[in-house]
């Protein structure tokens, strides 16, 4: 088994707010991230696929194809967007890095042309990242 990881970057804005909670509760839980005008990050996405090396090509998966899928399904949709206002997954869900990683897994997993998605890692900053492996 060989694991192949491809990186991509996108920049987006977001804020954390749960309309079911009071303004005071929102402020207490989310602090600075509750600013309704939002704030932004340069996110780094790392997508890891796992597989056996194809004897003829020497590839686990064609990197160019993986790059194109990541861009089509994720980067083109998220880059320079406001996650709360423009991404359907975050109409009712809070766009934390946890939920962002889950949404990206769900966008990529059915679209990898048979390659097995192993891990999605999203860096919000150098000092904070989230991994998902598709576990329930």
């Amino acid at each position: 088994m060989v694991y192949l990881t491809r990186k991509a970057e996108f920049s987006a804005s977001h804020f954390y707010h749960n309309p079911k909670l009071s303004p005071e509760e929102n402020q207490r839980i989310f602090g600075k991230c509750n600013n309704p005008n939002g704030h932004g990050h340069n996110y780094t996405l790392e997508v890891t696929v796992a597989g056996e090396v194809d004897e003829r090509s020497g590839f686990v998966m064609d990197l160019k194809q993986l790059k194109d899928i990541m861009h089509r399904e994720v980067i083109d949709a998220f880059d320079h967007r406001h996650l709360n206002k423009e991404i359907p997954e975050f109409r009712d869900e809070i766009p934390t890095t946890e939920n962002l990683a889950i949404a990206i897994w769900q966008r990529l997993e059915p679209n990898l042309n048979g390659a097995r998605l192993y891990r999605v890692r999203v860096y919000e900053t150098d000092d904070l990242f989230v991994d998902v492996y598709g576990e329930k």
């Binding site: 904070l128 989230v130 991994d131 998902v132 492996y133 576990e135």
Partner: peptide, 10 residues
């Protein structure tokens, strides 16, 4: 979905 959050300190 289960998620793993990592925070760095120094």
């Amino acid at each position: 979905m289960k998620a793993y959050l990592t925070r760095r300190y120094k």
